[in-house]
Design a protein around this nucleic acid. Structure first.
Lengths: 224, 224
DNA sequence: CGCCGGGTTTGACCTCAATCAATAAGGCTG
DNA sequence: CAGCCTTATTGATTGAGGTCAAACCCGGCG
C-alpha cells in the first residue's frame, strides 16, 4: 500500500526513500497529545485518519483553538520558527498520524527538488489558511463565521472524496466557539437559526447541508 | 555599506553572493504598490525604511488589512502557495524595500545551508505572527487589541534600536481598525480612554507610551 | 486669507453577541 | 436502572462595540 501521508508527484524509488523516514504512529486515543506547547520541535505530522485540533493557552489559561486538521492535512509548522511548538495538538477522536521528522525531510529535499518545492508549498498553505482565518475573525458576523466553518469542512471533506453535504463535526461546540471567537451559546443559536431557515439539518455533531448555495451567500455577503 | 536586508550570520564572500541578487528598489511613494493581489509571485521583500501594509479585499470589496511591516521585516510569503500574491502590499509612507527574487534565494539556499535555514525561519515566523493575531482577534476586547498593537509596535521599534516609547504610527485609524477587527470610532475612543488613564499620550499619529507596564497588564489580563 | 475636503474625534443611540441562568440530553459508573 | 456529570440548547437580560450623525482639526489651494 502506497504512502498516503505526502501525496507527492515523485517516482517509486523516491517514494521509497521518503517512506523509510516516516513513522506511522500507533493510533491515538481521543484527547491524546501529539505534541504540547513548549516541546522541542522535531517533526511535522500528517493526519491519516481521524482529526486533530491545535490550540494555545492565553495568559489567563483559557484555551484558544488555532486549527482543526482533517485527513491529508499537515500540522506542526508552528514549531519551526523557535525550535519548539507554540501550540499543543491533540486528537479529537481515535486518530492516526504520520510523524515526519523535519531534519530528514530537509535532507531529502536537498536530494529531491520536487520534495523541497512541495514542502515550501505546504508551509505557505498554512500561512494562507491562517490569513483566511484572520479575515474571517476580523470582519464577519457570528452567522458568517459559522457558515464559513461549515463550508470549509465541506470543501475539505470533498477533497477526501467524502460526502460534502453530510458532515460529522469531531469537535465540541466549545472548541468551535473558541476557534471562531464566539461563545458556545452563540454557536448553538446560530446552528439553530440556520436549521430553522432550512439551510442545515443539525443533529448533535451530525450536520447535513441542505442548501450550500444559500450558505455561501450568507457566508460572503452582508447579512440577510 | 553592508547589506541590511537579510541580517545573516554568513561570511563576507557569501554575503556578496547574496547581495548580487538583491535589488534595492528606488524609494516608493506613499500609497505606491509593491505588488497586488493576483500578481505572479516572484519575490519576497524586506522593508529597508518606511513601512508597508498588506491587505486583501473581501467579496464586498471591503479592505481587510492583514499585516503591517516595519524596517527589517519581510513580507510577500503569501504568494508562495499558489504562485500568486494573495494580498496587495502598499507603502504607507515614503518607503524603500529590497526585492529578493525567490528563485535566486532558493538556489542560494542550496549552496549555503545557513541561508536555507534562515529562510525557513523567516517563513515560519510569519506563521507565528499570524497565529498571534488570530488569538488576539478571537478572544480579546477592543482595549486589549489596541494595547497589544501598540506594544507590538513598541517591541519592533526596540529591535530597530529606536525609541520603544515614542512611536509614530504610519497608518490611518481606519487601517488600524481593519487590522484589529474594530471600527474607526472604537479605535479612536480606546486611544482616548487610554490617554485619560495616563497610559498614553496621543497626538494624532504620535503616541507616547507613558506606562508600558500597565499597558501590558491591560493587554494580557481580563479587563479592569 | 478663507474655503474646502479628508481624516479624526466625540456624542447619542441601537444591536448583536456575551453573560447569566435554567433546562434538557446523553454517556458513565455503581 | 438510578444518579451524576459533562455538553448542548434555550430563554432573559446586559453591555461592549457598532452605527449614524455632527463637530473638529488641519493641510492644501484658489
Amino acid at each position: 500500500m502506497g504512502n498516503l501521508c505526502l501525496p507527492l508527484a515523485v517516482d517509486e524509488g523516491e517514494r521509497h526513500k521518503l517512506d523509510q523516514f516516516i513513522e506511522h504512529k500507533k493510533p491515538l486515543q481521543p484527547r491524546e497529545k501529539v505534541f504540547h506547547s513548549g516541546e522541542a520541535f522535531t517533526s511535522i505530522y500528517a493526519v491519516r485518519s481521524g482529526s486533530v485540533k491545535s490550540f494555545c493557552l492565553d495568559s489567563e489559561g483559557r484555551e484558544q483553538v488555532t486549527g482543526f486538521y482533517l485527513p491529508g492535512e499537515i500540522f506542526g509548522w508552528d514549531g519551526l520558527a523557535d525550535d519548539q511548538y507554540q501550540n499543543t495538538a491533540i486528537a479529537l477522536e481515535t486518530t492516526s498520524v504520520c510523524e515526519i521528522p523535519y531534519e530528514k525531510l530537509e535532507q531529502l529535499g536537498d536530494a529531491i527538488p520536487a520534495i523541497k518545492k512541495y514542502v515550501m508549498k505546504l508551509i505557505s498553505r498554512e500561512i494562507n489558511a491562517d490569513q483566511k482565518l484572520i479575515a474571517l475573525l476580523a470582519g464577519h458576523s457570528a452567522q458568517q463565521k459559522v457558515a464559513s466553518l461549515l463550508l470549509s469542512f465541506s470543501d475539505r471533506l470533498a477533497q477526501q472524496k467524502r460526502s460534502p453535504t453530510r458532515l460529522w463535526l469531531p469537535m465540541s461546540r466549545s472548541e468551535i466557539s473558541s476557534y471562531l471567537g464566539l461563545t458556545v451559546e452563540t454557536v448553538s443559536r446560530v446552528l439553530g437559526a440556520l436549521q430553522k431557515k432550512n439551510l442545515l439539518k443539525v443533529n448533535k455533531k451530525e450536520i447535513e447541508i441542505l442548501d450550500k448555495q444559500a450558505l455561501q451567500t450568507l457566508a460572503t455577503s452582508a447579512d440577510e
